[in-house]
Design a protein around this nucleic acid. Structure first.
Lengths: 123, 123
DNA sequence: ATAAGTGTGCTATCTGAGATAGCACACTTT
DNA sequence: AAAGTGTGCTATCTCAGATAGCACACTTAT
């Protein structure tokens, strides 16, 4: 279902969260769409159900999905370009930019990197 | 000496490392300059000496400083725009850019953020 | 109605990274 | 000789992340 890098220092639940957000932003998952159940996801990914629970509860707290007891979890109406998610992404980008600048990466190098990233096709 | 945010998820040793790198890149610390000793740094910052040891050993491994037994630690000759450091910064920036893009941040928003960051004066 | 499937809410345990603590050693500087 | 320096250990503590298991409340499918 999702790709997990166990050697990454980024926690598994963050990796899954990121990938679900990407699916929502790219339109693969649309508002109202039903997500896989906690149990099916955790078993298919060989992860503990609590790990998936954490992903879903954070996504719900961010307003990206809505979980309904007994029924399932669904993409919320205002999931696309969600304010909390956008702000977090921008904050992280700001930190990375400040860090790069402080270490001597030039503005030109950054701009060319931005061009390159935004030319990449979405996988 | 350095500013530590204990609430940050970034480890203390990483925070110090980042700030030393900034001092080197900005020219406050020049090649050949002597760094404070492990013991003086750890005691003045109320941190364990092992935490500072980790900072210095990583910086030495990156080629930014050189530690001399019995004498002290010194900024190395090729510390400015050090390849390993630049590559790490660019990799992190790439990740942040991909993540922002995947979540719906537009290229224009990124470009304006880059402008803003590079207009900031160095503190 | 029943069974299966769903999310929720706990508690407990394990692991590894990060940080602390303390000691001994080798070497340089004063 | 004394003080200061980096190095190399081992041990301990804490916390986040992940696993494990159970009970409960509710919805959906049969």
């Amino acid at each position: 279902m999702f790709v997990i890098d166990n050697s990454s220092k980024t926690p598994i639940y963050e990796q899954i969260k990121t990938q679900i957000l990407a699916l929502v932003s790219s339109g693969v998952l649309k508002p109202g769409d039903k997500l896989p159940s906690l149990r099916s996801l955790s078993s298919s990914m060989s992860l503990n159900i609590n790990t998936i629970k954490k992903v879903f509860s954070e996504l719900e707290n961010d307003g990206v999905i809505i979980s309904v007891l007994g029924s399932g979890s669904y993409v919320s109406d205002n999931a696309v370009r969600n304010p909390k998610i956008l702000e977090k992404a921008e904050n992280e980008l700001t930190e990375a930019l400040r860090s790069a600048k402080s270490v001597g990466v030039t503005k030109e190098e950054v701009l060319s990197l931005v061009e390159k990233i935004y030319e990449e096709e979405i996988r």
